[in-house]
Nucleic acid binder design. Structure first.
Lengths: 234, 234
DNA sequence: ATAGAAGTGCTACTTAGGTAGCATTTTACT
DNA sequence: AGTAAAATGCTACCTAAGTAGCACTTCTAT
């Protein structure tokens, strides 16, 4: 994108507020902007990431999008990452350049900046300063995968659901964010379960006074009770 | 470790054969050696990684070691990574510098080279060439976590067991490596199950003519049958 | 060499959570 | 406005896999 693009300032400002680029000076940001293009997807757009020739690197500047795998045997989906503003993807194929099959679906209208993944890799190599924030970002991704893995293997459904909710509580408002307006089906996909099971458990939490439930809306009624639910479960 | 250390050449050669350091010249390798010390652990040594003040970065030069989490509710373990020669840890706390609670246990006698993790982070920053191999290594770690996660959530026990075996077949010898001499209990920890369940399934695979079983020894009898077992399960 | 521990191979039983089906409500789309 | 689709809240049922227990074998360490 060149400086005379009508969206240039808008996009540059989105990069400026992204913690991943926070310690880059304007000149460096502008060189990055030179690699990037803007794209918008409507809500509920689906696409498949896996054909190496079309690999791009995406920076989400608004909206949410899920990264998921499907089991072709029974059609069940599992949401590996729920990505939002300031997240980037696909990090795995950025790192190793190999084929990475993954499904994506937007949850809101989404705006992304993107660049060919090889170009992005070259840019990173020639701007090692980005490693100062990129490496911790990668660490966070690995940590999320690891926690998710351990929880799915070792914890039961009530614990997994409570943990999912607790990990999305906004510290200042004490209220649920990011996943508060997802359907039971989407919640199930995030904890490796099914719609019916999640609904059954949500009713339990509701009756216990932990949650307030409305259509596509979950809010926290008693945070302490939720914390008790997972307490001791490391 | 300084050049006059009796193990200096031995250790330097171990670094030379490590793909992670393959495109570093000798001068750079020697600067790395300056940060490192050698340590040996006996088989079945256990330790806990989680107190930030003692964080070190380790490079395994011989032997195997498992990285695992414990569920304190029921005592069940889950092996997150089985690390071996040329692997390094802990990558997560190297990247983000935050507390990372993890249990470790050696499976063989293990030799490691180690450095304080902050020192290692500084060394990486001042030798950005390492990123050429480090970033793909990180990508591989994330990929393993991701595949592991998806499999545990979406696949049943027979599929998970068959996949575990297949992912450890040596391409040239067509035989099982790395996990061939583990007990049923250790296998169970790798696929998020229990000893009894794994044994039950191993007997099924044995009766089907897929595997040969002896005490702490699994070998492949019919690779094709094993491939059929997972086929179609993406 | 011997005792205890570790590993294996079973049977029988239990249960968490997945599945199926349906009624009701809300939303989205011509 | 009216119909289809999506989302929810249930009941009833099923099954994969976890648990318990035990006999037997093979290591390991004094």
């Amino acid at each position: 994108m060149t400086a005379n693009d009508p969206h240039y300032e808008y996009c540059l400002n989105k990069l400026r507020i992204n913690p991943l680029f926070e310690n880059l000076d304007d000149e460096t940001l502008e060189s990055l902007m030179g690699c990037l293009s803007l794209k918008k997807w409507n809500k509920n757009s689906e696409f498949f990431y896996g054909d190496q020739t079309f690999y791009k690197f995406f920076i989400i500047i608004s909206g949410r999008l899920k990264m998921y795998q499907i089991d072709i045997e029974n059609g069940r989906e599992f949401t590996v990452f729920l990505l939002t503003q300031n997240d980037v993807f696909d990090v795995v194929s950025l790192l190793d350049g190999l084929k990475h099959s993954m499904n994506f679906e937007t949850i809101d209208d989404v705006e992304v900046l993107y660049a060919p993944i090889d170009l992005m890799r070259d840019w990173i190599e020639s701007h090692p300063k980005i490693n100062k924030t990129l490496l911790p970002y990668l660490g966070r991704c690995m940590r999320m995968l690891e926690v998710n893995l351990t929880d799915n293997v070792l914890s039961d459904i009530p614990t997994r659901l409570a943990k999912l909710i607790l990990s999305n509580v906004n510290e200042s408002s004490q209220q649920l964010q990011l996943i508060n307006d997802l359907s039971n089906y989407e919640i199930a996909n995030m904890i490796g379960s099914t719609r019916a099971v999640v609904n059954r458990q949500i009713q339990v939490f509701k009756k216990a006074g932990m949650l307030d439930i409305h259509r596509k809306s979950i809010s926290i009624k008693d945070l302490k009770l939720l914390l008790d639910e997972v307490s001791g479960k490391y």
